[in-house]
Simulated scan of single mutants.
Amino acid sequence: MQLFITLPYPASDLSGKTIIVTGSNVGLGLEAARHFTRLNADKVILGVRNLEKGETAKKSIEETTNRLGVVEVWQLDLASYESTKQFVKRAEGLRRLDAVVENAGIATMQYQVAEDNESTITTNVVSTYLLALMILPKLRETATKFNTTPHLTIVCSEVHAFTSFPEKNSPNIFKTLSDKETANMADRYRVSKLLEVFYTRELAARVKRSGKPEVIINYLNPGLCHSGLAREAGWRLAIIKFLFARTTEHGSRTLVHAAEAGPESHGQYLSSCSVSDPSPLVRSEEGAKAQKQVWDELSQKLENVQPGIMTNV
């Protein structure tokens, strides 16, 4: 039970490194960015939707770490493919890029459309991997130029295990998820996290076989933490969080750990700063079939959004 687990306090030296943390103006992302800055990173980029809130976060980090000129605030709205593309294009101009922590996400009970999907799927899944695959060449460039092993880390959740994922039986999973008439929004966040698990596992396996410069790709569960993500979830979760949730800082240690973890973490699910097993569904034959379908469908969507992107794998 997470209540009785003390996570290691980040203490490594990140001198010279450049790190991107998305969704970092509040919550886990903010506290992870604070750790990276404290640990002497050369540059920490906050990828945020709201620049004003991002500047407030930057000021907070500077005041608590006494490090000026390290944190930068960049615009990133994962509900927009164009915003995601522009963010990556800006990142391509960096001297180096050592880690990308994809923490941004939404949890909503309201059905609304962003781009060509329900907004949770666009934000948590499609744009998350649009960014990941577009930025892979920059990470590999850093690996070659600086003789290092960069990280691409996806912030997932243990709730990926709490859905039966009925959409897996659909001939087209993403089309079904976009159907307003059948959308189960109470289950949508859990499904989005399961889709992240499937795609990250497949991506890591294919990258490993590519023969290209090594990038460690992993995905993590920060546990139940105090954050603003589930503010629509109601009073029951609020009570559970009051009793059992990790502090935001404590939970953020899992993000820092994943962004520094060794090659044994490649393709792995990290929970409480250790390699763990994902859900039984993920590890089953049924899960393997669903993973392949998710890979094929999402890869085609990404290719439509950014032609040629799959050659980056």
Rank of each mutant, 00 (worst) to 15 (best):
T128G: 08
Y129V: 07
Y129R: 11
Y129H: 14
Y129W: 14
Y129N: 11
Y129F: 15
L131C: 10
L131D: 05
L131H: 01
A132C: 08
A132H: 05
L133G: 01
L133P: 04
M134S: 15
M134L: 15
M134T: 14
I135N: 11
I135K: 09
I135Y: 05
L136D: 03
P137A: 14
K138E: 12
K138P: 00
K138S: 14
L139T: 05
L139K: 01
R140H: 08
R140I: 08
E141V: 06
E141F: 04
T142G: 02
T142Q: 02
A143P: 03
A143R: 08
A143T: 02
A143L: 05
T144Y: 02
T144V: 14
T144F: 02
F146H: 15
N147S: 13
T148H: 09
T148R: 08
H151T: 10
T153D: 09
I154C: 12
I154G: 08
I154F: 15
V155K: 02
V155G: 00
C156T: 14
C156A: 11
C156K: 05
S157N: 08
S157W: 10
E158Q: 12
E158S: 13
V159I: 15
V159E: 13
H160Q: 12
H160P: 01
H160W: 08
H160G: 05
F162H: 12
F162P: 03
F162R: 13
F162S: 12
T163H: 10
T163G: 07
F165W: 10
F165T: 01
F165S: 02
P166Q: 11
P166N: 12
P166W: 08
E167S: 13
K168Q: 14
K168C: 05
S170E: 15
P171E: 15
N172S: 11
N172M: 10
F174G: 03
K175I: 02
K175E: 14
K175P: 05
T176M: 03
T176K: 01
L177V: 01
L177F: 04
S178M: 00
S178P: 06
S178K: 07
D179W: 09
D179R: 06
K180C: 05
E181I: 06
E181F: 09
T182D: 08
T182K: 14
T182E: 11
A183I: 11
A183T: 13
A183F: 12
M185H: 07
M185Q: 13
M185N: 11
M185W: 03
A186E: 11
D187H: 01
D187Y: 04
D187F: 00
R188A: 10
R188G: 13
Y189C: 04
Y189M: 07
Y189I: 05
Y189A: 07
R190E: 01
R190H: 04
R190A: 05
V191N: 07
S192K: 00
K193Y: 07
K193N: 00
L194Y: 04
L194N: 00
L194E: 03
